[in-house]
């Protein structure tokens, strides 16, 4: 079983962090993983994306055109990746920032008003983690408890103050229903 994912949005939204966290969790859970970031000037404020592959067998290509799962956090990323999601795949989006729709009926579109949820709960800057919560819920890639453990483990001691906000944001996304 191989799951391919693309995370896309604007620089500064935590796109790379999300991708890295999912990849790292995959590694902790005993899977083969690859994380391929876009790099260069776009890191600094432009569009940012990364590709994650999680598999129980050796991973061939780390670069993916049509992912099983796309997570998009701005309009250009929605426009670019909504058409590319594999049939039967899932499209997660921050519906606070994206008011676009797709006419595709062969994929599940999962809108989460992540930015609004973050603002309402004093979690500015954690909308990516809120989305991650929803991804864990909807994909079943990881057990929730395990993922919390992986998330906490990857926060360096110097930033221990962030643990509470991260876990709160994750829980918020995990429990969010329309």
């Amino acid at each position: 079983m191989t799951t391919t994912m693309i995370f896309a949005g604007s620089g500064g939204q935590g796109i790379q962090f999300s991708g890295k966290q999912i990849a790292k969790s995959g590694m902790y859970a005993g899977y083969q993983v690859t994380f391929l970031p876009s790099y260069g000037p776009e890191m600094r404020g432009g569009t940012s994306n990364c590709t994650v592959v999680i598999s129980d067998e050796e991973i061939g290509s780390p670069s993916v055109v049509s992912p099983d799962i796309a997570v998009v956090m701005n309009k250009p990323s929605f426009e670019k990746f909504a058409p590319r999601v594999q049939a039967g795949g899932k499209l997660f989006l921050d519906s606070t920032l994206i008011d676009l729709t797709t006419d595709r009926e062969d994929i599940s579109v999962i809108p989460v008003p992540a930015t609004t949820l973050a603002e309402e709960n004093g979690l500015n800057g954690f909308s990516n983690v809120i989305l991650m919560g929803k991804i864990i819920k909807e994909t079943g890639l990881f057990k929730y408890e395990d993922f919390v453990e992986y998330l906490v483990a990857s926060i360096p001691p110097a930033k221990a103050a962030l643990i509470e906000k991260n876990t709160k944001a994750l829980e918020l996304g995990y429990n969010y229903t329309v």
């Binding site: 890295k20 990849a23 590694m27 083969q32 993983v33 690859t34 994380f35 391929l36 970031p37 790099y39 780390p62 670069s63």
Partner: peptide, 10 residues
């Protein structure tokens, strides 16, 4: 190459 340099794997 740049992809191998930038990508992450265990």
């Amino acid at each position: 190459d740049g992809a191998l340099g930038q990508m992450m794997e265990p």
